[in-house]
């Protein structure tokens, strides 16, 4: 299959996304990622396949509904404990999903009208996706915005991403690609002509530590950054600031040096301080919370890191 009928797996499309590049943007989140960052706030992004998500906020409980109980042939759904409905004093009995049994077939989501159960991961053809995101063109035009393709690691679906970016450029929409950089150089080469801006994660300059914590070494990542710079691409570097991992002044200094070595290509460096807001999202698709829990870095610390980077003549923002 090729061209506009090619399919990709999307887990979210967010309009009025204003942190993922210039102007008002629509960000498309693709499923699947080869890295395993412990602080990841998008648990639904990691696996390549669709996953069942259950949101207590929208489930109306067994007494009012309970339809999903009768649908799961694997017996993965059973009555759960009686608790208080969030924000109220009312008792509610939710359902319990046994993740070990559930094979993410999705049958239960079809009967769940309130939207408690839903599948994370929906197939889109290039054509449908481009149609969907181009709906907001008036907003992109007014604000200098456009579309950001994010993940997961978007380039894990390289052909799909290539076709999407190409189609977007055909209709003159500004494109940004949010990537970990962990992909084959040829994938980068392919998308380069159709990507106005790379949002590029740099997590650690030391490859050993990089591998230890996120599961892959960083050589390929740094290599690809150079590749983009050499080809005249534009890069917005993003540094997640994670306590006890990459928040040392030393590492930030090295990162700054690397950015500087990329020359004109780096238009902006963003510091993204760790925060602990991802926990409830985990509960939607996993039994246990696997996300890193740590004290967010202090404002002073971040400020200091910002200054270090600025000393390299870089433009730095904090988000």
């Amino acid at each position: 299959m090729s061209g506009i009928n090619l399919k990709g797996k999307v887990y979210d499309i967010q309009g009025f996304s204003i942190q993922d590049g210039p102007g008002i943007r629509t960000t498309v989140f693709l499923k699947g990622c080869p890295l395993s960052c412990p602080w990841c706030h998008s648990p639904e992004s990691q696996a390549f396949g669709s996953q069942l998500s259950w949101m207590s906020m929208r489930c109306i409980g067994i007494e009012q509904c309970g339809k999903c109980l009768n649908v799961c042939e694997k017996g993965a759904i059973t009555p759960g404990e009686v608790t208080k409905k969030s924000g109220t004093d009312e008792d509610i009995q939710y359902v319990h999903i046994n993740r070990k049994i559930c094979d993410n077939c999705g049958s239960c989501t079809e009967v769940c009208y309130p939207g408690g159960l839903s599948m994370c991961g929906e197939e889109y053809t290039v054509n449908d996706l481009v149609d969907r995101v181009s709906k907001d063109t008036p907003f992109y035009e007014q604000s200098g915005g456009g579309v950001t393709i994010s993940g997961g690691e978007a380039l894990s679906q390289p052909q799909f991403v290539f076709e999407v970016l190409k189609s977007l450029k055909e209709i003159e929409i500004h494109t940004a690609l949010d990537t970990t950089g962990f992909t084959d150089g040829k994938n980068i080469d392919a998308v380069l002509p159709y990507t106005d801006l790379f949002l590029y994660d740099l997590k650690h300059m030391d490859s050993v530590q990089h591998k230890q914590v996120v599961g892959v070494a960083n050589e390929k990542i740094l290599e690809n950054a150079k590749r983009i710079a050499k080809a005249g691409g534009k890069i917005q570097v993003r540094i997640p600031v994670i306590p006890h991992f990459n928040d040392s002044q030393d590492n930030i200094r090295q990162t700054g040096e690397f950015c500087k070595s990329l020359g004109e290509a780096v238009v902006l460096v963003q510091l993204l301080p760790y925060h602990n807001l991802g926990i409830t999202k985990y509960q939607r698709i996993f039994d246990d919370v696997k996300v890193l829990e740590a004290e967010p870095p202090s404002d002073e610390k971040i400020q200091k890191l910002k200054e270090i980077l600025e000393d390299f003549g870089l433009t730095v923002t904090i988000h």
């Binding site: 009025f16 204003i18 008002i24 008036p138 907003f139 007014q142 604000s143 200098g144």
Partner: peptide, 22 residues
Amino acid sequence: TALSNETGMAKLEALMKTYFSM
């Protein structure tokens, strides 16, 4: 939080302007 900095404000302004232009 959407409007805590200048960029956020500029984007809000653009949002409103687009609505008005439509």
